[in-house]
């Protein structure tokens, strides 16, 4: 009974989500608002700014390198959290 209620609610949610497609730009449209001057700047200036061919690599390690530093900090925080929840293994400490 509870599962049917959830299923009906989620179907309504899916209909709401799909109906939002009318207001969105068509996928792959060059005039979509996401393809704005920021992306054009990266595409046009990667070669002279960083001298590498992979534009995504240029974004994550040069233009937004500080963001990637935060990303590695997230990984470090996750392993700190896992160690603090599970604890060090006693076997490894004896070595």
């Amino acid at each position: 009974m509870k599962n049917y209620l959830i299923l009906i609610t989620l179907t309504l949610l899916l209909i709401v989500l799909v109906s939002s497609l009318n207001e969105m730009p068509v996928m792959g449209d060059i005039a979509s608002p996401a393809y704005n001057e920021v992306a054009e700047y990266y595409i046009n200036n990667t070669q002279e700014d960083t001298n590498i061919t992979n534009i995504i690599s240029a974004i994550i390690t040069d233009y937004r390198a500080f963001d990637t530093l935060g990303e590695t900090t997230v990984l470090f925080t996750s392993i700190t959290a896992v160690v603090s929840v599970l604890g060090f293994s006693i076997k490894d400490k004896k070595e």
Binding site: I59, D67, T68, G70, E71, V74
Partner: peptide, 16 residues
């Protein structure tokens, strides 16, 4: 290229 570069952050957060 921007969404692909930003989703990398999302993947790392998902793994964590």
């Amino acid at each position: 290229p921007l969404p692909s570069a930003m989703i990398l952050t999302g993947i790392v957060v998902a793994v964590s």
